[in-house]
Design a protein around this nucleic acid. Structure first.
Lengths: 225, 225
DNA sequence: TAAAGACTGTCGGTTTTCAGACAATGGGAG
DNA sequence: CTCCCATTGTCTGAAAACCGACAGTCTTTA
């Protein structure tokens, strides 16, 4: 098993809840690959390449592969897994993945994945769980994007980001421009919305980051006024 | 096996691609239940109740369970399956489901589902496929909601709806008010956007419906510009 | 330490959306 | 067949978001 992987992965995400034998099997077959900031990990239309997991750093999810790289749709940190849809169905990638920081990734090739499940079909169950988590994340995203009020939408998006890239202090380290891209709002409106939320004591604006100080308060904003 | 189910289900969606033994097993264990228009099938927060499949009619997907019933987020027709996330992870429902028309549903209880997979763990694989399809649908929805231009957003949403509730002529039978609720736009803007698309020859406005006449043209609107 | 670059907070003009209203039209009920 | 109601197409004023621009602040690099 690659050194340093297990301690991270077993602390975060779905793998921790799988049987240890399964963890060992997955981790021993997975490659560890590093990417510099901005590097393309995979993009829309690529053929299925297996599962990818974030070990360290943050990755950007892109949609609408406009020939180029598509627009920034979401971000995620350690413990996030992706590629399940393409890996399972064998179809082309639906999203693109790009390194935001310097990133350490874990890759389980599709062939290895199939080999593992061939040997023990019951392990499919754990890939089901993985897909279910991805689906939950997508639903959260839809939930956030359906908010029409900028303040609510930003609050929902910040909660999602905090869930996908957790820090001890509830800090979301993203520029307001990035938040604008994620929410589909202009930078000016993002700033105003952040100011509103700060005035209500729900968060603090920092340089290139936002500190969420009242998660419950933010949550209450997202379900109807 | 319930009469009349197989011929529908085997024509649409994921089940058709599964081994026949799996189809028979699922269909023989599933209940068939009818709902009148507007009836609540399940709602957010409910405990996992298994898989639901649409046999006939159309269902509404609701999000943001605002105490009441939440806002209309999506619609789907025959061949659509849902409930996988809750059924698999055992957690509470993330979305609510309501009958739009008079609806015939197929329900596979969670207990039956687990019994089936206990007997033959390899069948998990087919539930993975099911979850993957749901994830693809969710990504499509995110894709549509991320369009900022009303015309593009509406075009993307119409394509999604046509995919989820296919008719022979590419007809989406929904009022402009419903389309407004689905896209998060006001009715007036929906009308204007439809007029624009009609002027370009991409669709035809009808009473309580829209006929898509140029799917490729609509598709090209959704990626950039 | 100093300079350069990037980000934030804010402003004003322009464009767009929203909310509500109205007449005209289509479809269903009796 | 006629009436009734829901839906459409359109318009208005009010509200909001977008865009570009600017000075001030923060961080990093030389």
């Amino acid at each position: 098993m690659p050194d340093g992987c297990a301690h991270v992965l077993q602390k975060v995400g779905w793998l921790a809840e799988s049987p240890e034998a399964f963890q060992v099997l997955v981790l021993s077959k997975a490659d560890r690959i590093g990417f510099p900031p901005g590097a393309r990990i995979y993009q829309q239309g690529d053929q299925a390449g297996g599962l990818w997991g974030v070990v360290e750093g943050r990755v950007e999810l892109h949609l609408q592969g406009d020939g180029d790289q598509g627009t920034l749709a979401h971000m995620a940190g350690p413990g996030f897994w992706t590629g399940d849809l393409a890996a399972i169905s064998g179809g082309p990638r639906r999203i693109g993945l790009t390194a935001h920081d310097s990133v350490q990734m874990l890759r389980l090739p599709r062939s290895e994945m199939l080999r593992i499940t061939d040997r023990d079909p019951a392990l499919w169950r754990h890939f089901v769980r993985l897909a279910a988590i991805s689906l939950g994340t997508a639903i959260d995203l839809v939930d956030a994007l359906r908010q029409t009020d900028p303040v609510s939408r930003l609050a929902a998006m910040l909660l999602n980001l905090n869930r996908l890239m957790p820090t001890e202090l509830g800090e979301v380290r993203l520029s307001q421009a990035d938040l604008g891209s994620l929410t589909g709002l202009s930078r000016g409106v993002v700033n105003a919305a952040l100011a509103t939320l700060e005035a209500r004591g729900l968060l603090q604006r920092r340089y290139k980051s936002v500190v969420l100080t009242d998660l419950a308060g933010l949550e209450s904003l997202t379900h109807g006024t």
